[in-house]
Design a protein around this nucleic acid. Structure first.
Lengths: 156, 156
DNA sequence: TATTGTTATACTCTATAACTATA
DNA sequence: TATAGTTATAGAGTATAACAATA
């Protein structure tokens, strides 16, 4: 029997969780990428981001952001408004429907987590979450920013 | 600040671990998919699999298996031998070089895990691994079979 | 001239479907 | 006729590069 260590388990469980999340999101006509962007746009509601700033935060190229925001905007969840201070750029705002959608995404997430963690006791769940948070923090992972957004980086 | 739960952390950390694994594997001229197949071929050495059986175990279509095995075979890690009992099918064998390569992959994995878990105490690492194993087992994840191999399934 | 967002092009990856050989 | 493996074709997804508007 070959060695299966914690890094493979993390990757395997992480992919399983991501697949489950994506599958549930289709009922809301969204992909995981949309959910991450929407969450960030809602979170920065008082200091709205430009598309450029949003793209840099997630590490996605500008050209990839455009169709993702198009989808969110066509669904009435997000608005692009020309930045009065620099009319080249757009500021991103969540609509009330967008905020409501984020709430639905979060309750869907809670339901998913209940299923994933059903085999653990409450104290084990808390222990797991604490360990994962410690790891994510020590590895420099940015809260809410999934590595799948990131493009490949070149060594100089 | 939006809610970031254990499922997102799992997915985020899992993707991070997978990216690190893939990056290190390039030095061995392999992709993660090759490593998973090689591991399975070595593990079934006494009862060799046909390509069909291997593909079904991982959930990959036969046409996708071909170039993956081509790469392993051209690297001298795996051999296809016509099945004497049914000359339509191939039996898959790992060469000594393939077994040695799996050893290198495993030591690379240990090094990766040491980095990933550097912020945890030894007992925390053991606790995390135990929790992850419990989860993987309860969710029906097959040891060594990563969900990324799986194709989409249709609802009937 | 430089930068923001958009559009166009090209490339990678994968699955579906045709094809060859054995049964 | 049916099945194992291979090859060919086509589709989705993404990045790189050209483009238009504003600074």
């Amino acid at each position: 029997m070959p060695y299966i260590g914690p890094s493979f388990l993390l990757s395997q469980l992480g992919a399983f969780a991501a697949d489950g999340f994506a599958a549930r999101l289709t009922a809301l006509d969204l992909a995981p990428q949309h959910a991450g962007l929407l969450r960030m746009i809602v979170a920065t509601g008082d200091h709205p981001l430009t598309q450029n700033a949003l793209g840099q935060r997630f590490g996605v190229p500008a050209s990839r952001l455009v169709p993702l925001l198009d989808h969110l905007e066509s669904g009435g969840l997000v608005e692009r408004r020309t930045n009065p201070a620099d009319r080249r750029s757009n500021l991103l705002f969540a609509t009330p429907a967008g905020v409501a959608m984020l709430g639905r995404i979060e309750s869907l997430t809670h339901a998913l987590e209940a299923e994933l963690l059903a085999s653990l006791t409450a104290s084990d769940r808390a222990a797991l979450e604490g360990l994962l948070r410690t790891l994510a923090g020590s590895l420099g992972l940015v809260p809410g920013v999934h590595p799948a957004y990131r493009a490949l980086e070149d060594a100089p």
